[in-house]
Design a protein around this nucleic acid. Structure first.
Length: 316
DNA sequence: GATCCGTGGAT
DNA sequence: TATCCAAGGAT
């Protein structure tokens, strides 16, 4: 790996800055009038979730809960319900907890610095830096999966970053970050955008890349990854069962009796209100009783569900 | 540091 | 059809 000298680095900064100005997507959380709260919500929703799926839910949330206090005034189950099918519903729970924390400890405002942001539920290393940079214009070392991949190819000459974030990657990101505060904010956004739109994990569009002439990976002849990413299993897992149960709870207007999860409604002699389809999907999984038990217990422990009147419901 | 935690579009 | 993988965080 060869670090660019200061002149080369300035060239990279300039090239990506221009590329971003010309081609970046118009996303509502990038609008100048978007509130810090809107940016915070977008960052949490975007964790492990593509932009196209986030957009409609984010718009709904902003209309429904325009400030942290609006969300904090609701039961946490409302956040989970309106999270819809974004996935990882714990994020909704933590977003609600973060809203409560902001109301109780930050005068209802989104904290404007990395340290305090990091103290919010569901806000980790990446998200704290991203909010500090994009909502408050701070110079932060933002490192997400896109930025890691761009750095790996452009500077390190490897096809993919290491399986887990390393200290070396953070040092590299520090070294590449423009000294100028405003430029550093745009640099973070543009490297991320490049990774999302051009320097993608599979079949990168190198012909469209504004810095392809500087790319160490291209110069090395596009060597293949040095390891095989291990896939996320899904079928037959507890996660799949949890997901199916959550789909039922999101649709339910009243608590869903326990037996309903184990037995078809028809066999119980009555139909549930509005949960027919997700309930059928759950039953189609035909999971073992102990697996269903684990899933339900896990959801209760995590606070994604609660018992009420002998049934299960989202926290009210 | 390894695991767990959802979902669905793309390939 | 099966696998990949997306603006990670918490434990």
């Amino acid at each position: 790996m060869t670090l660019p000298d200061s002149g080369q680095l300035a060239g990279l900064h300039q090239a990506l800055d221009q590329w971003f100005a010309e081609t970046a997507r118009d996303l509502p959380w990038r609008e100048p009038d978007c509130s810090p709260w809107g940016i915070l919500v977008s960052e949490v929703m975007l964790q492990q979730t593509p932009v196209v799926r986030v957009l409609p839910v984010w718009l709904d949330w902003m209309e429904r809960w325009p400030t942290p206090a609006h969300l904090a005034d609701e039961p946490s189950g409302a956040a989970v319900r309106h999270w819809g099918r974004l996935g990882y519903p714990r994020r909704a729970l933590r977003l609600h907890a973060a809203a409560v924390a902001m109301r109780e400890q930050h005068d209802g405002q989104v904290p404007d610095n990395y340290i305090e942001l990091l103290g919010l539920p569901g806000v980790g290393n990446y998200t704290a830096a991203a909010i500090a940079a994009f909502a408050f214009g701070r110079r932060e070392t933002v490192v997400d999966t896109n930025i890691r991949r761009v750095h790996a190819r452009l500077i390190s000459g490897s096809a993919l970053p290491a399986p887990a974030l390393t200290a070396g990657e953070m040092r590299l990101a520090d070294a590449l970050l423009p000294d100028d505060r405003e430029l550093s904010v745009r640099w973070n956004a543009s490297v991320m955008e490049l990774g999302a739109m051009v320097c993608t994990a599979r079949s990168p569009k190198c012909a469209d890349c504004p810095v392809r002439s500087s790319c160490a990976w291209l110069a090395a002849g596009e060597p293949p990854p040095s390891y095989v990413p291990k896939g996320q299993s899904w079928h037959g897992t507890d996660r799949q069962v949890r997901g199916a149960v959550m789909a039922v709870l999101r649709e339910a207007v009243t608590p869903v009796p326990r037996e309903m999860f184990e037995q078809a409604p028809a066999d119980l002699g009555f139909a549930p209100s509005g949960v027919g389809i997700p309930l059928a999907a759950l039953h189609r999984l035909n999971s073992a009783p102990e697996q269903l038990e684990r899933a339900l217990a896990g959801l209760l422990v995590d606070g994604l569900a609660e018992m009420h009147d002998g049934g299960l419901r989202l926290p009210a």
